[in-house]
Computed example of a mutant assay.
Amino acid sequence: MASAKGLQSLIPQKRTEVKKSTKKEKAGKNRENIYLIDVEDIQPNPNQPRREFDQDALHELAASIAEHGVLLPIVARKIQKSTEKGSQVQFEIIAGERRWRAAKIAKLPRVPVIVRETRDERHNLVLSLIENVQRENLNAIERAVAFKRLLEEFELIHEEIAARVGKSREFVTNTLRLLGLPSVMQESISRGSISEGHARAILSLNTEKAQRILFSKIQKEKLSVRGAEEVARIFKARIRRAPVREGGSERGALEDQIKAKLGVRVRILKNGKRGSLSISFSDKEELDRILKILLS
């Protein structure tokens, strides 16, 4: 494993001064220069999708950084910040806040940084969200919130988000569906109490009541993802076997209206929020007559 000293020997060490490395780049135009920048001249990004930092994991990373240095550079953009002493150059993190926090705990004076040029504030926000989704170990809810921002604030469609973060459209769509869960379940996903696989099993159920029952069973019985999927399958099978007729005068009135129109017996069945309409016919001629009425 490369040592911190080995990395620093390839990087200029002037305080916050953006200067080309003395080592020539031989890998082509797409290579980016790395600079050593004082940790105090770096600030977090207010649009960072990560909202929670596990303190134990952060201190473990700090211990590793203290021994080996920051091996994966932070990505930041240069900004001008007004202070009492005048304008000051600062660097706002695009990706790598967790590494920066750990480096501060490890008391490193400087960290390696790739400085990105951004065209405007909108471009910076999109770049920050995408970099964090691609490079950081976000939990599923943080990732879903980032996707939602790209969807709503920047009007990207699912296919465009998928292309930019290197995932499939289905992955983006399924991740966004997590935000449809009750808040208590979203919080459990964020904390790691239940996994994204558990959440998919819960989302396969159509009613919030059924979702809450399964969520409770997962927690109380510590079900595996496969166990949660099996319970969800049993729930759905029970619902299919026990359809409930929509009761009361409203159901009867609807059935009578349809019967008067078609001239055959009909039945309305309800299954949670869903349902079905059953139409009886005695032979093919009667079926053809009903179809003619429905399609006319």
Score class of each variant (00 low, 15 high):
Ser3Val: 06
Lys5Trp: 08
Leu7Ser: 11
Ile11Lys: 05
Pro12Leu: 00
Arg15Lys: 15
Arg15Asp: 15
Arg15Pro: 03
Val18Cys: 05
Val18Trp: 09
Lys20Glu: 14
Ser21Glu: 07
Glu32Phe: 03
Asn33Leu: 06
Asn33Ile: 01
Asn33Gly: 08
Gln43Lys: 15
Pro46Tyr: 11
Asn47Ser: 05
Gln48Ile: 05
Pro49Trp: 13
Arg50Lys: 15
Arg50Pro: 08
Ala57Met: 09
Glu60Trp: 04
Glu60His: 11
Ala63Val: 04
Val70Asp: 05
Leu71Met: 13
Leu72Ile: 10
Ala76Cys: 13
Lys78Tyr: 01
Lys81Gln: 15
Ser82His: 11
Thr83Ala: 04
Gln88Met: 09
Phe91Gln: 09
Phe91Arg: 09
Glu92Met: 12
Arg98Gly: 03
Arg98Thr: 10
Arg101His: 07
Arg101Gly: 00
Ala106His: 05
Val113Lys: 03
Ile114Met: 10
Val115Gln: 09
Arg116Pro: 01
Arg119Lys: 12
Asp120Met: 07
Glu121Ile: 07
Asn124Ser: 12
Val126Trp: 05
Ile130Asn: 04
Gln134Ile: 14
Arg135Ser: 13
Glu136Ile: 00
Arg143Asn: 00
Ala146Asn: 09
Lys148Met: 05
Lys148Ser: 06
Glu153Ala: 05
Phe154Lys: 05
Glu160Thr: 03
Ala163Leu: 12
Val165Gly: 02
Gly166Asn: 06
Gly166Met: 03
Lys167Ile: 06
Glu170Leu: 04
Glu170Gln: 13
Glu170Trp: 01
Phe171Arg: 07
Thr173Asn: 10
Thr175Phe: 06
Arg177Tyr: 08
Arg177Ser: 10
Arg177Pro: 00
Leu178Met: 12
Ser183Thr: 11
Gln186Asn: 13
Gln186Arg: 15
Ile189Gln: 01
Gly192Gln: 12
Ser195Tyr: 08
Gly197Met: 04
His198Tyr: 03
Arg200Ser: 02
Leu203Gly: 04
Asn206Lys: 14
Glu208Thr: 09
Gln211Trp: 01
Ile213Leu: 08
Ser216Phe: 01
Lys217Trp: 02
Lys217Gln: 10
Gln219Leu: 15
Lys220Asn: 07
Lys222Glu: 08
Ser224His: 01
Gly227Ala: 03
Glu230Val: 08
Glu230Phe: 02
Ala232Leu: 03
Ile234Arg: 14
Phe235Leu: 11
Lys236Asn: 13
Arg238Gln: 13
Ala242Leu: 08
Glu246Gln: 00
Gly247Met: 01
Ser249Asn: 09
Gly252Ser: 10
Ala253Asn: 12
Leu254Val: 01
Leu254Gly: 00
Asp256Cys: 01
Lys259Asp: 00
Lys259Val: 00
Val264Ser: 08
Val264Pro: 05
Val266Phe: 06
Arg267Leu: 12
Arg267Asp: 11
Leu269Gln: 07
Gly272Pro: 00
Ser276His: 07
Leu277Thr: 02
Ser278Phe: 00
Phe281Ser: 03
Asp283Lys: 02
Glu285Phe: 09
Arg289Lys: 05
Arg289Ser: 02
Leu291Asp: 08
Lys292Asp: 10
